[in-house]
């Protein structure tokens, strides 16, 4: 972490808890860069998270108020805090399983209410902390500890889901697109209403090693290769497009 960002880290916090090659550490820094660019007052920032690896991005590392809640319920806790004290800038940082599987109902309802919450969903397409089980975001065919023959089900398109539910800022970027992701986080911070950023983050430990992307850099390279912007997707055949991940700002 560069020196300028150290002031955003809670005194007493040492190294991050993430595995080598995990994208969450990158995301952790990108969020702080966005906060630093906007000169946000950390004393008025509340970071709410659920349970799972991504929930540890803000808690306890960020030097604002942090609320590390229960599995799936981060948005409900955040809703209560924001409604009672609207002066707080409330950011929810949690994982795909937390926000969209066990917490899926809270996700669509928070989006429907368009409450001013900045939600960053660190999507590694798997349950990392509990040992690599299939998530609601695991691609069809991917191997996990509960889908040894490949996941038979379709994953959620989280951006379409929250857009359909009523979110008013929606984007998807990978941690391999750091500049775009910082810009997007800044936009979410300035947006008044329910903002949702799906931040793709590699999990070599649980996802990569089961899916022929064993070394950390393999997953990074794979994301760089597959993540394209909407306009880049236009000239592609159906087949070419199927293996790409469309990133960009979908609603702003």
């Amino acid at each position: 972490m560069v020196r300028a960002l150290e002031k955003y880290i809670r005194p007493g916090v040492k190294s991050t808890p993430f595995c080598p090659g995990c994208g969450h550490g990158i995301l952790m820094g990108l969020i702080l860069r966005a906060i630093d660019d906007l000169k946000m007052d950390m004393k008025k920032m509340l970071f709410v998270s659920g349970i799972g690896c991504a929930a540890w991005i803000p808690s306890p590392h960020y030097n604002g108020d942090t609320l590390h809640t229960l599995h799936g319920r981060a948005l409900a806790f955040a809703t209560g805090a924001k409604l009672y004290n609207p002066d707080l800038c409330v950011m929810v940082v949690s994982g795909d399983g937390d926000l969209s599987s066990i917490g899926g109902n809270h996700l669509i309802h928070a989006a429907r209410r368009d409450i001013d919450l900045k939600v960053i969903c660190a999507n590694n397409m798997i349950y990392g902390m509990t040992g690599g089980q299939a998530a609601s975001t695991t691609p069809r065919g991917s191997k996990t500890s509960t889908t040894g023959e490949g996941n038979p089900y379709r994953p959620f398109d989280l951006c379409k889901l929250v857009e359909g539910a009523g979110a008013t800022y929606v984007s998807r970027f990978s941690v391999t697109q750091p500049i775009s992701l910082i810009q997007s986080i800044k936009k979410a911070l300035l947006h008044k209403g329910f903002s949702f950023i799906e931040a793709l983050s590699p999990c070599p430990t649980q996802f990569g090693r089961r899916n022929l992307l064993e070394r950390p850099e393999d997953m990074i390279k794979d994301l760089i290769r597959r993540c394209i912007l909407e306009e880049e997707a236009e000239g592609l055949t159906e087949e070419e497009r199927a293996e790409k991940i469309i990133t960009g700002e979908f609603l702003s």
Partner: peptide, 15 residues
């Protein structure tokens, strides 16, 4: 569970 969770969030916000 969303209700009681929102209550806890609000309580920490001072309510």
């Amino acid at each position: 569970i969303a209700s009681i969770s929102a209550v806890i969030g609000a309580s920490w916000a001072g309510a």
